[in-house]
C-alpha cells in the first residue's frame, strides 16, 4: 500500500472502505477506473451521487424509495392485510425474488442486540405498531434471521403485537444463510423435535 500515495492512494483508500473490498481489489478497481474514458467515470460518479441524493427510506415501510413511498407501498395490487417484518432493506429484495409474497413490508433497520447497545428504541418498532393500529393488517409475518438476535426480535414483537388481535407468524426461512445442507438438516430437525417454539 505504501507505493500508492497522493491522488491514487486516496482513491484506493476510498474504494477500500467498501464492504468486501480488500486492498488488492481496491487497487484493481482504481486501475480499472484510470483506464476508462472520463465520460464513463463521470457516469459512475453521477450514479452514485444521484442514488445518494434521491434514495431514502420509504415513509411507511423504510424500504428504499425514490420518492415519499417505495414502489411496493405505492402498488395498489399489493395485499395490505399482510405485513412482512424484515431486518434490512436487502431482505426485501430476497423476499421479492421469490415472487410469491404479495403483501407489504416493514423494515426494522436492525435487530435487538443488547451487546451492541441496540434496543427496541433504536429500531422502527414504534413505527410498526403505529401502522398496525391503523387497522388494515390482519397478519404479521416475522422474517428476521434465525440467529439469536433475530429470534429475540421475533419473540419481542410477538409479545407486543398479539394483544392487538393480529395474527403473528414466524417465517421458517429454511436454510441459514450460507449454511450447508448437512448441518442445516441436523439443526432444523432437532428444533422440530426439540420443540423450538413457534410464535402462537
Amino acid at each position: 500500500m505504501d507505493y500508492f500515495s497522493g491522488i491514487l492512494g486516496r482513491l484506493i483508500d476510498e474504494l477500500g472502505r467498501m464492504p468486501g473490498i480488500g486492498p488488492k481489489a481496491a487497487q484493481r478497481l482504481a486501475f480499472f477506473l484510470l483506464r476508462q474514458d472520463a465520460a464513463v467515470v463521470q457516469q459512475l460518479a453521477n450514479a452514485m451521487l444521484e442514488a445518494k441524493a434521491k434514495i431514502r427510506p420509504c415513509a411507511d415501510c423504510f424500504f428504499l424509495a425514490e420518492g415519499e413511498r417505495c414502489h411496493i407501498c405505492s402498488d395498489p395490487r399489493r395485499d395490505a392485510r399482510l405485513l412482512c417484518v424484515v431486518e434490512d432493506p436487502k431482505d426485501v429484495f430476497s423476499m421479492e425474488r421469490t415472487r410469491e409474497y404479495r403483501g407489504l413490508y416493514h423494515v426494522l433497520m436492525g435487530t435487538l442486540s443488547p451487546l451492541d447497545g441496540i434496543g427496541p428504541d433504536d429500531l422502527k418498532i414504534a413505527e410498526l405498531l403505529k401502522r398496525l393500529q391503523a387497522g388494515h393488517v390482519q397478519e404479521v409475518i416475522v422474517a428476521t434471521n434465525q440467529d439469536v438476535e433475530g429470534e429475540a426480535t421475533a419473540l419481542y414483537l410477538n409479545k407486543l403485537i398479539k394483544p392487538l388481535g393480529i395474527r403473528v407468524t414466524r417465517l421458517a426461512s429454511g436454510l441459514p444463510a450460507g449454511g450447508d445442507l448437512e448441518y442445516a438438516d441436523d439443526i432444523t430437525i432437532s428444533r422440530a423435535l426439540g420443540g423450538r417454539r413457534e410464535l402462537e
Partner: peptide, 10 residues
Amino acid sequence: ERELEPWNTQ
C-alpha cells in the same frame, strides 16, 4: 424489564 423475556425464552 420486558426486554429480558426474549432472551429468557431462548
